[in-house]
Amino acid sequence: MNLRGGVTRLLAIVGGLVALTGLPYAIYIILYELRKPEGSPAKKEPVEPAVSVVLPTYNEADIVETKLEDLLELDYPMEKVELVVVDSSDDETPELIEAFFEDRDAPELTLLREDERRGLAVALNEAYAAADNEVVVKTDCDSKVAPDAIREAVANLADPDVAAVTGRNAEVLGGSKVERGYRDVQSKIQTLESHLDSTFIFHGPFSAFERDAIRPIDEDSIADDTELALKIRKEGGRVVFDPAIRYREAAHSSFGKRRQQKDRRAMGLLRLLWRQRGMVGRYGKYGRVVLPFNWWFMIISPWLIAGMVGIATLGALTVGGPVGLVVPSALAAVVLLGSRDALGPFQLLYSLFDTQVSLFRASLKLLAGKGDGTWDVDQELREAFN
């Protein structure tokens, strides 16, 4: 085969894979343009039910007081709020929490102290069981929540069809353009999914649930918020995304540093999709449209992209010899520039590619039998929070 013919064939193969990979995304874009969804699909009403705020903590001594101060500044009557903290720390976190509330009558504090770390899912199941109020809000210690977040959440839950709601990362602490680009795309996807039926992903920094709709999550879960939302949808409740509910969460841009944060989340979502594969095709548009798209985006597409990169690299080396090194070199340059937020108008595409990298790596880790329900403290992100 001559050089020209080889290049033509290689381009045809890669082009075919690109078209195949991009087809579901094109369908979602068309659906978005046809529906033009905005805001939450819920019939929101101004209500003030009693709320239990669940806060899991592990060695949060550097930031827990800042988090508690933020919670007290929420635009919601604190006499209607119960704070349920489930703690497995081996530092002074629980003592700081008790001291913080020592002279306060509201909100009411329930502190559940664990003698050993048993995983986040186990801790959350315990906290949800201890929550007494009509609405349960779950938040993370290393996130900042907008003052009106609870009001917006309970307004969504006033709709009898809606049993759970999550919000959007309005600002990425630490200034990661990689994560910012991905979250912007994700917000559009979740808005569309919510208007079609229900969204798939729920976010740890802020999610709210009707207490009676809460079900136990698997003890080895590493996608606890999304798993709970999925189980609620499985029982008939709608689970939606409302961009009016805002929070802030820290994230890295550096390629290496992002992997631990993104890969673990990806592992949880992949395992959840696989375990709940029987839902595909059922439960209205959730099973016929939303879940199939997430299957494609999270499970199939990363392997197709990895295949494209492999075929393009191998083909270029086979056809062009040493000249073919331009393909992996170009990819390395894109990763380097993208991780430095230096790709300009192409930064958004890189943020999607970066997510696909994590999903591919996560699938390999799961196939190798890795993944548990514990999490590690990222001190650098904790500093961004403060």
Rank of each mutant, 00 (worst) to 15 (best):
M1C: 04
V7L: 12
L10W: 00
L11F: 03
A12Y: 00
G15H: 01
G16V: 08
A19R: 05
I27A: 15
K36D: 14
P37E: 04
K44P: 00
P49N: 11
V53N: 01
V53I: 15
T57S: 11
D62I: 06
D70F: 07
M78Y: 08
E79S: 15
D91L: 13
D91R: 14
P94F: 04
P94G: 13
E95W: 05
I97L: 09
F100A: 07
E102T: 13
L111A: 13
L112K: 13
E114G: 05
V122A: 09
E126Y: 01
E126W: 03
A127Y: 05
N133W: 02
V136Y: 01
C141K: 00
E152C: 02
L157W: 02
D159T: 12
V162A: 07
A163T: 14
A170V: 06
V172C: 00
V185G: 07
S194Y: 10
L196K: 05
L196R: 05
D197G: 07
F202M: 15
D212M: 11
D225C: 04
G236L: 08
F241L: 12
A244H: 06
I245E: 00
A250P: 09
Q261T: 09
K262W: 11
R264F: 10
A266K: 01
L273N: 04
Y286A: 03
F297L: 12
I299V: 15
G307R: 05
V327C: 06
L331I: 15
L331T: 08
L337G: 03
G344S: 14
L349T: 12
S351H: 08
S351Q: 11
D354H: 11
S358H: 06
F360M: 06
R361M: 12
T374W: 00
V377E: 02
